[in-house]
Amino acid sequence: MDDVAKERTVAHTAPVAAAREALVSAGAYVMSPAAVSECLGTDEHGWACFATHWEDLAPDEYAAERGTRRLRRYGHFSLTRTGELTLLPHVAFVQPEQSNPLYVDVDRNFEPLTDAFVADPLLTPLLRMLGDVAACLDDAAEWSVKVHPFRVVASADSQGAPTPEGRHRDGVTLVTSLLIGRENATGGESTVYDPDGRELLTTTLSEPGTLLLGDDRATLHGVSPIRPLDTGRPAHRDVLVTTLRAR
């Protein structure tokens, strides 16, 4: 992983500027796949290669206990203001206080990100771009970046719940959800709310590369369940959830 700031692949592009403006004024924003691809310098082939990592996720036993079939992995990075990105030692995932009501004070042990995922050409520029976006919310010298590739699975007799905890915060500064793919799925509508419950933004992430951004300090968010379009086959929804919090 190249940590030299002068070789950063992400600049303050027009898409990043638009995202910053929207986060400051409205608290949430959707970046189009074209805008995200422009920032990352990638194309359909790059997205297709990145999506293969979602075939190598591990079962989420904690979600299974609550009736949700979910696959995932987890990794923790530090990201400096100058773009130096470092993978931190793998430890249990703990939600910040007063965020996820289902797992208060629960240490959840997930399988780590694979070496291939960490080395993927899209990951470093993506995390650096998110650091550039988050700079509008906090002038942090260093970010704690937590990376969660998810696959939620549904069948004819079992809906898939991307957010079984319901409307919630993640206890961070910036919360993001990047759509990787959907297969045979209906539903999965993402909604961002203000603290009083008023809807600020509602969207269904349907095209790979679409990125939902939220100021987690000022909003709450949730995603409706998915169900199969063809009930004879399972459905799944693949996303990359990434959060940034000032260290």
Rank of each mutant, 00 (worst) to 15 (best):
S99K: 01
S99Q: 07
L102C: 05
V104F: 04
V104T: 09
D105M: 11
D105K: 12
V106H: 07
D107L: 11
N109A: 13
F110C: 01
E111G: 06
T114I: 10
D115T: 12
D115A: 13
A116W: 06
A116L: 09
F117M: 03
V118A: 05
V118W: 01
A119I: 02
D120W: 12
L122G: 01
L122H: 04
T124W: 14
T124Q: 15
T124F: 14
P125R: 12
P125D: 06
L126A: 07
L126R: 01
M129G: 11
G131F: 09
G131H: 14
G131L: 14
D132G: 14
V133N: 09
C136V: 13
L137P: 05
L137M: 11
D139Q: 12
A141H: 13
A141K: 13
E142R: 10
E142Y: 10
E142P: 06
E142S: 06
S144H: 13
S144I: 09
V145R: 02
V145E: 03
V145G: 04
V147M: 04
H148Y: 15
F150W: 04
F150G: 02
V153E: 13
A154R: 07
A154Q: 04
A154P: 10
A154Y: 14
S155V: 08
S155A: 12
A156L: 10
S158I: 05
Q159M: 13
G160I: 07
A161S: 14
P162F: 06
P162N: 11
P162G: 11
E165G: 07
R169K: 04
G171E: 10
G171Y: 03
G171I: 09
V172E: 11
T173M: 14
L174N: 00
T176R: 03
T176N: 08
L179K: 11
I180K: 02
G181N: 04
G181T: 02
R182D: 05
E183M: 11
E183C: 08
A185V: 07
A185C: 02
G187N: 03
S190H: 09
S190C: 05
S190A: 06
Y193H: 05
Y193V: 15
P195H: 02
D196C: 09
D196S: 15
D196K: 11
G197H: 02
G197S: 08
R198E: 14
E199M: 08
E199N: 08
T202I: 11
T203S: 04
L205A: 04
L205N: 02
E207C: 07
P208A: 00
G209M: 00
T210F: 08
T210Y: 03
T210D: 04
L211D: 01
L211V: 09
G214P: 06
G214C: 13
D215N: 06
